[in-house]
Computed example of a mutant assay.
Amino acid sequence: MTQLRSGPPLLTASDYRHNAAHLVEPDVWDFIEGGAEDERTLAANERAFDRVRLRPRVLAGVSDADTGVSLFGTRHATPIGIAPTAYHRLIDPEGEVATARGASAAGALFVVAMFASRTIEDIAAAVPQPQGLWLQVYWLQRRDVMRSLVRRAERAGYGAVMLTVDVPRMGRRWRDMRNGFTIGGDVAAVNIDPAVMAAAHVRDEGESAIARHTADTFDPTLTWADLAWLRAQTGLPLVLKGILTAEDAALAADHGADAIVVSNHGGRQLDGAVATLDALTEVTDAVGDRMPVLFDGGVRRGTDALAALALGARMVLTGRPPLWGLAAGGADGVAGVLRAATGELAHAMVLAGRPTLAALDRSAVRLSSLTGADA
């Protein structure tokens, strides 16, 4: 629970969101909150959880719940981690250093974005266990930049590399285009050669500088065969983020991915794409025990996390709520958001008669239709 200097305590993610909305510049708020085009998939991610009902068990003798989970040899106190999001210094002067401290205080995984606004070394130095950090990367035309990043992450003690695979081109984010959104001031993606990032800092009316930068620097010709090159650059586990189908899940396993993330980029890429909760069982059925499956998209409360975990996810990631926490209270706000969601999860686990995450399975939930016009 986070207590601001004035006002009631912040108990839920929606409390943090309400406070953050008054503290962040409007164009930055749109950058955080917005999705692609009409934002149908953005809304569908959250709406999917409304079609899940939990199945409590009684007289189960469960008085407490253990929310701990291990992945790649690192133990986390919570299965609710932080998804990669860029440019945290747009929200807080300490940026990703504050986010990392908050995640560490809550015992949570933090996936640091390639376009972080603090160096990956400074972020690692801010926490006692840098293996609780992962580095997210996009596939750039400049492979030397990618190579340098993943090797720096390995030297800094990061626990894995996460490759986001669903951006051959950036989704059309109309809020950013209407705002002419540009990364300005002294905020920058400090881990990347400034020449590579130049287009992100040039404002043009009616255009997103982020989208223009993506078009200039990302490599849309990437295929499954290219993953071998990235695997050869580092000994860290390789996680692929952006899987929504059984076909791609099986291909990820066939090409040596160590884990995958069921994700539609928070509704920010293909508007009308399937909600992530709707895709989860398809993916987990396709990979079976071949690799861990992580999940993101629309997680706003602990019961959302419980639903995804019951449907086969090993961990869940959340993107916007930690930013709300960062805006509302810095590192303490980030920790507060994560602790609130983890507390909600533990409470629900006790009432469901599930003392551990391993005890969660599909019998813990009942699903109404997860397909159709509202999916």
Rank of each mutant, 00 (worst) to 15 (best):
A313M: 02
E205L: 12
P220V: 07
V299S: 00
W224H: 03
D166F: 02
D278E: 11
G330D: 13
A310G: 05
W174P: 01
I192A: 08
D27N: 11
T303P: 00
E282Y: 13
P168E: 11
L11V: 13
N19K: 06
V293L: 11
A348L: 13
G266S: 01
G298Y: 02
A359W: 05
L367M: 08
G325V: 13
D296Y: 02
T221Q: 05
L306I: 01
D92P: 14
A286E: 04
V316I: 15
E39L: 09
H347A: 06
R362Q: 13
I80T: 03
L238S: 10
P130F: 05
T119L: 12
L338T: 04
T223H: 06
A348Y: 08
R231V: 02
P321G: 14
H18T: 09
A250V: 08
A359R: 08
G298M: 15
R212T: 14
A359P: 09
D122V: 12
G267Q: 00
D122P: 08
G297A: 07
R101D: 11
I120C: 06
V24D: 15
R17H: 05
L163R: 06
D38I: 15
T78I: 01
V239N: 00
T85I: 08
D176E: 10
P128F: 00
G333K: 10
A86I: 02
G336V: 01
L323E: 11
T164Y: 15
R147I: 15
R172K: 14
G256R: 04
S368D: 04
P220R: 09
L244T: 13
G180Q: 08
S63F: 15
M315Q: 14
W224Y: 11
A36H: 09
A253T: 02
R314P: 06
G272F: 08
A188D: 05
A124W: 03
T281Q: 14
G272C: 14
M114F: 15
E33G: 07
A189P: 04
N191S: 10
V190W: 12
A60N: 15
F115W: 12
A105G: 14
R301P: 00
R339T: 13
E121D: 07
D122Q: 01
V62D: 10
V202Q: 14
V239C: 10
R172L: 12
A310P: 03
M349Y: 03
A156N: 09
E121R: 01
A246G: 15
I120F: 10
T74G: 04
V28Y: 07
V111W: 11
G329Y: 04
T234S: 00
A116K: 10
L338Q: 07
P220W: 03
A160T: 10
L90P: 12
D216V: 08
G288C: 09
A77R: 09
R118N: 11
G329S: 02
P355C: 03
D50H: 09
V262I: 06
G333P: 13
D66Y: 02
R169F: 10
T85G: 13
D332A: 07
D216A: 05
A252T: 09
I210S: 05
S148W: 08
L90V: 07
Q136W: 12
A328S: 10
